[in-house]
């Protein structure tokens, strides 16, 4: 493990196939920088990706990585971290992966509070299947499968996380490179489940939630007197019907992460050549 890791060390030699202008380029750059800035290197990092445009990220980054099935990145990543707490574990996916097919796991991953980060590239559309409504699509957003709009309110992932007992809730914008990197870095450094919803615009299929929209509308809580340790203040910004925010919206540094709560510290990959030394005790129990 070298101390002079550069963020480009986390880049693979495979060229991304994302559309030119896709928000995921900026999202990924911030992730790589955050990992490098926190002293990690590719050999001690495990990236888990779901399915969708976002899921391709494991291919474009260089680290230990698994590109899994649709919606199951979080339990997979939790298993990696529990088995080897020395690894830096990051899960990545999109709004469909995390808030539709995988939303059941999202709630429980938040509750479990495994020390890892979860970066969701939220473009409010299904891009890879060429433009259908996602769980974060607006109520009147017209798509091929919802010609009159979904006619149901979008999921508020931040509120879901807050209600499930999250210890770190943040939001960023892929195009605001410096802030995005800072926010992801805070999620990586957080001792627990560091959740970042990243606005990562789809330039091909979403003409509503665009770069211009986020650039004009996002309020950075870093520029206000927002106190992320104040639960009520967090509720106010997360449930605000008028505005959308970026920055660390909520953080609870008091709660124990899963590993500390369950006494996990050993690398489970290391086992003896035979049965454990006192395994015969197990047989004696059955007398």
């Amino acid at each position: 493990m070298s101390s002079d890791v550069r963020f480009t060390d986390f880049k693979s030699d495979k060229q991304p196939t994302w559309c030119p202008g896709c928000g995921d380029f900026g999202t990924m750059n911030g992730m790589m920088k955050a990992l490098a800035n926190t002293g990690n290197d590719p050999d001690n990092t495990f990236v888990v990706a779901g399915i969708g445009c976002s899921g391709k990220i494991g291919t474009y980054m260089h680290s230990y990585a698994l590109h899994g099935v649709h919606g199951r990145a979080l339990p997979l990543a939790a298993g990696v971290k529990m088995a080897n707490p020395e690894l830096e574990v990051m899960a990545a996916g999109g709004d469909g992966d995390g808030y539709s097919i995988g939303v059941g796991h999202f709630i429980h991953a938040v509750r479990r509070n495994v020390d890892m980060s979860y970066i969701v590239m939220d473009n409010r559309i299904y891009g890879l299947t060429k433009g259908q409504a996602s769980p974060t699509s607006r109520e009147d957003f017209e798509t091929s499968t919802t010609p009159e709009g979904p006619k149901q309110p979008p999921v508020n992932p931040l509120a879901l996380a807050l209600s499930a007992g999250a210890t770190f809730i943040a939001q960023s914008f892929s195009s605001d490179a410096m802030r995005h990197t800072e926010i992801v870095q805070e999620a990586v450094e957080h001792d627990g489940f560091g959740f970042v919803n990243v606005f990562s615009p789809c330039v091909t299929f979403n003409d509503v939630d665009t770069y211009d929209y986020f650039r004009d509308e996002l309020v950075d809580v870093g520029e206000t007197d927002h106190d992320p340790t104040d639960l009520e203040a967090a509720q106010d910004v997360i449930l605000d019907p008028e505005k959308e925010y970026q920055g660390v919206l909520y953080q609870n540094e008091q709660a124990n992460a899963y590993g500390a709560e369950h006494g996990l510290s050993e690398n489970m990959a290391e086992i003896p050549d035979g049965a454990p030394e006192d395994a015969t005790d197990l047989v004696r129990e059955f007398y």
């Binding site: 698994l66 199951r72 339990p75 298993g79 529990m82 088995a83 059941g104 489970m268």
Partner: peptide, 26 residues
């Protein structure tokens, strides 16, 4: 013996957790 048991939220999660641990070498 240095191990851990997790009760997952469903079987989908259970096998993915086990897969993750196995990828980590356990």
């Amino acid at each position: 013996y240095g191990g851990h048991v997790v009760q997952a939220e469903d079987e989908l999660s259970a096998i993915n957790m086990a897969l993750g641990a196995a990828r980590a070498g356990a």
